[in-house]
Amino acid sequence: MFDLTGKCALITGASGGIGGSIAKALHAAGATVGLSGTRVEPLEALAAELGERAHVLPCNLSDAEAVDALPKAAAAAMGSVDILVNNAGITRDQLFMRMSDDEWQSVIDVNLTSTMRLCRGVMRPMMKARWGRIINISSIVGATGNPGQVNYAASKAGMVGMTKSIAYEVASRGITANAVAPGFIATPMTEKLTDDQKEKINVQIPAARMGNPEEIAAAVLYLASPEAAYVTGSTLHVNGGMAML
């Protein structure tokens, strides 16, 4: 089950906790992986760890031209892009009343607009191949909202609406588009929280713990697999029951 032998996957934000786990899971299932991110060093380290079938494809997602060039670079390196995982994202938290245009725009640009550009860039070859998987990593916050994250929540909710619309357009061509919405996941970002903060978060989660990146990667692996061919336009919530949607 979930065999991706012969498939090529492009993963953005592969230097991060969740992105790295996604890359490892798809690679373990037999896929060739294209690791994209802004920081080259961790990408190189991950590629070295994976060994064969791993390519490093640095890209600054706030640079529109670089984003447009990424699908072509990925196809040149791997042969094709059969699976696209838009995982990269940034936060610039701020109280809404104080939020600057720049804080708003930079988050929208990286999280939402770059995702749109990458989806658009892989669409033509996927249409020709009559097979494709688009998996956009949204967030629980896109569905529930979160104080201080007006920009981030808007970008993540935007990804869901976009994913559904893409799913409609290309479903008849063997291409699926889905979102995965993680809840609180233990990554280097959440490690910075104090024990007290973690405790307060955990009481809001029926599973009484944070998720781990492998649990997000497993959801992505499923949606990328041939077995998930009939699942499209959906959002898979992986949040320990924190929001039952």
Binding site: R124, M127, K128, E169, V170, S172, R173
Partner: peptide, 9 residues
């Protein structure tokens, strides 16, 4: 409409 895009391709 998607067919027309594919025809052009």
């Amino acid at each position: 409409s998607l067919d027309t895009v594919e025809l052009v391709m």
